[in-house]
Amino acid sequence: MKAMTRPLLRVNGLGKTFVLHGQGGLSLDVMQDLSLTLSPGECQVLVGRSGIGKSTLLKMLYGSYRITRGHACLHFDDGDLDLAELPAYAWHALRRDVIGYVSQFLRCVPRVPAVEVVMEPLLMRGVDSDQARGEAEGLLARLNLPQRLWELPPGTFSGGEQQRVNIARGFIGGHPLLLLDEPTASLDAANRDVVVELIQAAKARGVAMLGIFHDEDVRERVADRLLPLDDHMQRPSARLGAQHGEASQ
């Protein structure tokens, strides 16, 4: 249990600025000086009004958005890793093995069957395809996705069905750090319960989670800690022309 107390993720003074060159170099500070620590087996829930930057934070931690300022260090037994300084190629292995992400929307190749969408994170690690299929089907069954849909591409599914495919894909990999962006948004009560169970089981396995849940009931049941984002983390006064010209890579 000693290792459990050691944070997996330590975020310090994180800041994000978008510079919109198409708008004459309009500069938007969307995050200021955000800090947090997240331990293995812990689920922290981001709260705050819409547009405060909850999804932005998850995307910065997943590498989809660049970190403008500050540090986000992942702790490993053999040394720390600052996500702010990570070269692009290093994210491939990190996403495959360490950081998982359940987004609000499913984005995948059209015409690929749902079960294969779910299997992919395991296949990327070289897991045998029969085993991956077994695990994927198990998860889809648990999430009450009707079996007749498994071999169909999710493009035509309802929002809730797509969401469940997305959740299965996110949880199948067993990543030590999971970022959850409103995974329960379009689910009914029964399926929300399943997701809560999945999260609690992941916690028990020592998975660290950072999530956004608008449903208060779910939030109550999964959150070990709430992390309120408030307006002082944002500086809405846009500065025009502050960072004109070409941004460096």
Binding site: F76, D78, L81, L86, Y89, A90, H92
Partner: peptide, 9 residues
């Protein structure tokens, strides 16, 4: 947990 191999050849 160990560092994953981050730098591919």
């Amino acid at each position: 947990m160990k560092h994953p191999q981050l730098e591919p050849p």
